[in-house]
Write a protein that binds this DNA or RNA. Structure first.
Lengths: 184, 184
DNA sequence: TTGCTAAACGGAGACTGTCTCCGGTACTGT
DNA sequence: ACAGTACCGGAGACAGTCTCCGTTTAGCAA
């Protein structure tokens, strides 16, 4: 790639990150282009669709997912507390941009999605977490990580679009956690 | 209201029902107007926003909610089976139009929403159902109907937008149900 | 350094959807 | 039948998406 192209690409991604944060995921792409000081054509050549741009914006974010799993597993407390803690982290991770939870959760399991890699990172993180917790026998037998991603993603989607407070979200995550834990 | 105005209003609602069913909730409103044989102005005078039109479209649908609760409660089986059955019904009810689950669930608890009445009908139905089940002591103590609407609505939203099969949705509803039932 | 060429730029504009304004139409009560 | 007004409907302003194509420029070879 030519140096100027690389520069423009970086500038667009950086600008998009800010614009998406400030105006939500539905922000005008022409605004992103203008803000970045490039023409609309340049933006659309680099990123044919909104999804591909979002994918680039999220790249750095993906790296944080694995860290978060580690920290969540290291926390003290009952399996229930650890699980709810991780769910809370998960919701935060996918709620970084408005509209993010819906996009990510719905693309989950869709092999053709442009943000496939992000979904895979998330689902891998969930798998890793559940496997660790499961080794203690804390979980029900037949828990499918993809299913859990969708359940927690559903809660995050509703919370995101309905602008719910954390205090309302937590009990919902607790219900999901209770549904997954082996009954004592 | 003048007779011609009423005629036009009815025609718009009827047409919108078809158009929304065929093209999803995001269908062009100008298309609805054209299909109904009226000008865009007429449509927007009767229904200032997309939400108000959707509200009118859903009117007949609301009447079915109460019936469904009754039938769900009358079903044979364990509390868990009855609960999952009702959740399945609930998902069907709010998934009648594409985009419906998200709209309805996010408007839940928002007093200012134009589709407030629909949400109230749903939340009342959920309350009635849970109260009946609770009287058998089958549920955990602190179950909030609004919270359950959001949980099940979240599942429905993900299923709707991700076009998930019923066989994938059911286990998710079971997890929610297990989280709500009193542990034995 | 100079000149060439392919790659990249960028903005005008086509297209689509939303929503408003206002001149014209026609329903209803008298 | 008539007047008054409630209502109609489409032209058009506005905003966002995306493409096309003339112009510019980076990178390379001589």
């Amino acid at each position: 790639m030519r140096a100027d192209a690389q520069r423009n690409r970086d500038k667009i991604v950086e600008t998009a990150r800010e614009v998406f944060r400030d105006h939500g995921y539905d922000a005008s792409l022409d605004l992103v282009a203008k803000q970045a000081g490039v023409g609309a054509g340049t933006l659309y050549r680099h990123f044919p669709t909104r999804e591909t741009l979002l994918d680039a914006v999220m790249q750095s974010w993906v790296d944080r997912v694995d860290d978060t799993v580690g920290k969540a597993l290291a926390r003290e407390g009952s399996p229930r507390e650890v699980l709810v803690g991780w769910f809370t982290d998960y919701v935060s991770l996918i709620s970084l941009h408005k509209g993010g939870p819906a996009k990510l959760t719905c693309a989950m399991g869709d092999e053709a999605s442009p943000i496939r890699t992000k979904c895979q990172a998330l689902s891998a993180a969930m798998t890793r977490f559940l496997a660790d917790l499961d080794s203690d026998g804390a979980l029900r037998a037949d828990v499918d990580p993809l299913e859990v991603c969708r359940l927690v993603g559903g809660v995050a989607t509703v919370a995101d679009q309905g602008e719910l407070a954390a205090s309302v979200v937590r009990p919902m995550l607790e219900v999901v956690a209770d549904g997954l834990l082996a009954s004592r």
